[in-house]
Design a protein around this nucleic acid. Sequence first.
DNA 1: TGCAGAAAAGTGCATATGCACTAAAATGCC
DNA 2: GGCATTTTAGTGCATATGCACTTTTCTGCA
Lengths: 150, 150
Amino acid sequence: MEDTPSLDPLLLRAVEASCVCLRVQRASRAVGRRYDDAFRHLDLTNWQFSLLAAIEASEAASVNELATFLGMDRTTMTRNLAVLQRRELLSMAQDPQDGRVKRVSLTPRGRDLLLQALDAWRRTNDAVKAAVPAAAFPAMWQGLESLARS
Amino acid sequence: MEDTPSLDPLLLRAVEASCVCLRVQRASRAVGRRYDDAFRHLDLTNWQFSLLAAIEASEAASVNELATFLGMDRTTMTRNLAVLQRRELLSMAQDPQDGRVKRVSLTPRGRDLLLQALDAWRRTNDAVKAAVPAAAFPAMWQGLESLARS
DNA sequence: TGCAGAAAAGTGCATATGCACTAAAATGCC
DNA sequence: GGCATTTTAGTGCATATGCACTTTTCTGCA
């Protein structure tokens, strides 16, 4: 093995100080945990809640559409849906027009759970919003959207 | 089963339009994928890069300290470290002062890989930054920090 | 000194995540 | 109509993630 390669300490500090990825991931984990706490009594995670809401708000979305909406891999979505389907919170049916497409919709049970969760969501969302300086919020909102689309 | 519970469509739309969690998670996944692409030729993921950089920048950090720094669960960190240790990118040693604490440091191999990755990081970080309107960036930066601490 | 409690790290479990690959169905071009 | 191409979804695999619980070690106080 050669000598230790020269690692610029300044560059390293730049990573810690200015890495967009690190910053976003850290915030994402912290926020996710917070919503997870709020939904735990319903045995829901933050993304499961988002998923249920997305399904209900959309009219029979496909797996692809849901994956795109939540910004996650399609195959991850497939498996996430399977978990909620096993809990009978949602159902999937083949599209009559296109045999490849599966249409997802909530069961009454899923709708009921979502209804119960909305309250916790509102409280938590308000609290999390309050943690961000009001002056910074709109720009952060816009910035996050830019990142999600980039 | 009762009648379908009444789900306010407006409230549902509010979730999609104003859920901080959804917004942050979506951005987080998009950004993470982007860095993952940039590091793939080195067989590194975005958080593995962040972890290597954090280890090198710190002087022999403990597992706890690294977990806190990256904002992830301590037990997740334990297992993430194990993967990199198996690849001989880092080594762990018991703290001589405190037998409970494990100190983590990079091997020469790990340091070399980090050095190689820094280039890809700088390019990607610049590109991702450029995707956010310059006027929004400082506030977003501050907002993310607030969220991570909340 | 000895022991209760705190702190650091690891394990078992379930599920999440994404990539490479596969299977099935639709589309378009000839 | 027939076949190459594209689109949609699922599987195998490896690893990530966090919670509950455990083990080991340290700290502080009687």
